[in-house]
């Protein structure tokens, strides 16, 4: 079924989101640059910006616990570098 999403095939899918953020204390030059750009737009009250990544993932044929286990494994093995990053897994439905 390459090329066709599970939803198109009519099987049960779960939607999930993995959020990867830099650990506190890790220098984030990109976040700093974005912070400076927001200030230069005249937006008031921006104290600091840290940037990160969001992965929206569809999982098929899984219950909630199994989906969470797969996503945790995906985050540990590839999506996050746990030397510098934290991740959060949310199964959204």
């Amino acid at each position: 079924m390459a090329g066709a999403s599970a939803a198109m095939m009519g099987t049960e899918t779960m939607k999930a989101r993995v959020t990867v953020t830099l650990k506190s204390g890790i220098l984030d030059p990109q976040g700093k640059a974005i912070e400076g750009a927001l200030r230069s737009l005249g937006l008031r009250g921006v104290v600091s910006v840290r940037q990160g990544k969001v992965f929206d993932i569809e999982i098929e044929d899984a219950d909630r616990a199994a989906a969470e286990a797969v996503l945790k494994s995906a985050a540990e093995k590839l999506l996050a570098n746990t030397v510098i990053e934290n991740y959060r897994v949310e199964v959204t439905g």
Binding site: I26, L27, P29, Q30, A33, N81, V83, I84
Partner: peptide, 16 residues
């Protein structure tokens, strides 16, 4: 570093 052969990470250059 990503493969675990060496410790640490190479981050974006400080001056971007």
């Amino acid at each position: 570093c990503e493969a675990g052969l060496l410790p640490g990470v190479l981050m974006r250059n400080a001056q971007l």
